[in-house]
Write a protein that binds this DNA or RNA. Structure first.
Lengths: 207, 207
DNA sequence: TAGATTGTTAATCGATTAACAATC
DNA sequence: TAGATTGTTAATCGATTAACAATC
């Protein structure tokens, strides 16, 4: 099993389960989850089975316990701290975003080189990058959101890694070159739009 | 070949090529591109070959022509229009974002149900959702960015599809249920962070 | 020419599915 | 019990890699 792909599927199952729970359902079956997620029923059962999640032979899966097991699997019982670097358009939107609490995450600090931006008042303190190491140590941070301009992304990412960060959610539209032990997830809006357009185009293209 | 995965790789090659071009290089080789992207040299050559992109047996690939061919492949020579729906935190950041032009995309309109938000002045006009169909027809829009709150995402997405949208870049943290012909790309910040944390956690977990 | 690199065909590997046994 | 569903083992399928031929 390609673990990366499998983990993505597990996250997808969880989103579907939240939806079903929200609709007031208590239990579900591999075929219902399949309908919600587009993943085949066998594969769903196999994924669950491989992570030690068991259903009832005839009664399907209990939604609440499924969600609990997934939460456990993703280590979401204990709160995890993140930092944000860069207070531009996207950075500002990300500080104001309210969803962290709900996912048991906590944004403990924001960093920006611009002193003017550091005077802005958010629910999260804004520091100069010089304080990064201190914050990383104090709050045991291993993951950072990188939302700086393209031209400084590589340099800043490198600085983050030097100061103890080992996972980066990168919003800058560049391929970061970092030591092999560092994990990077890229969010690139243009690339996502482009891929949508490509697939739509191909589909509607005359033979 | 899983076309979805292959297309993602091609986009990745392009990002690497832009970096190399930026560094002043004129040509490259499958092994250099491999170093930049983490994809094996054979697979890179195979990908190019399958899309009819040819190198020189001994001289590698010309970066500019490679970029041209990829641009052509992704249909990026002709401008494509998109709309944005939802002017919340993320929506506001996305209107202000400057990268569309560069990718030969054009945001032609923003939609929000809140009349107060419609008075805000951006470089893009803000309308009520009632005008959606008109804009879609006038500007031949097939892709929309959805940045509305979670509770209204499903309903709004459905409305978009009813009015001619067939590709959605979804920022709302929900699994959208839409007709099979509609393509959805999800951008979910919490899920990305969570996956980073999972992989870091697994890696550092004691045996 | 020798060496380096592309491009392709065959082999391998891993992920998904089919078949079916287990059981509630 | 019969029927429905899970969970697993074996088969298939597709994607990646290995091997190598082509050629600049």
């Amino acid at each position: 099993m390609n673990n990366l792909v499998q983990i993505k599927r597990l996250q997808r199952y969880r989103m579907a389960l939240l939806r079903l729970k929200n609709m007031g359902l208590k239990k579900t079956f591999s075929h219902s989850l399949s309908e919600e997620t587009g993943v085949s029923p066998v594969l769903i059962r196999k994924d669950f089975s491989q992570f030690g999640i068991r259903g009832k032979r005839r009664g399907g899966y209990d939604i609440d316990s499924l969600l609990d097991e997934l939460k456990l699997l993703f280590g979401r019982e204990k709160e995890q701290n993140v930092v944000l670097v860069g207070l531009g358009n996207i950075g500002a939107a990300l500080v104001k975003y309210e969803g962290y609490r709900q996912s048991n995450m906590n944004m403990v600090a924001v960093f920006d080189i611009d002193p003017v931006k550091r005077t802005r008042r958010y629910s999260v303190p804004v520091y100069s990058l010089e304080s990064l190491r201190e914050v990383v140590n104090a709050f045991d941070v291993s993951v950072a959101i990188l939302a700086v301009p393209e031209f400084s992304a590589q340099e800043t990412a490198h600085y983050l890694v030097e100061n103890g960060i080992s996972g980066i959610l990168n919003f800058a539209p560049v391929l970061l070159k970092l030591p092999g032990h560092v994990l990077v997830n890229n969010i690139n809006i243009m690339i996502e739009l482009e891929r949508l357009m490509y697939h739509i185009g191909v589909r509607t293209k005359p033979i």
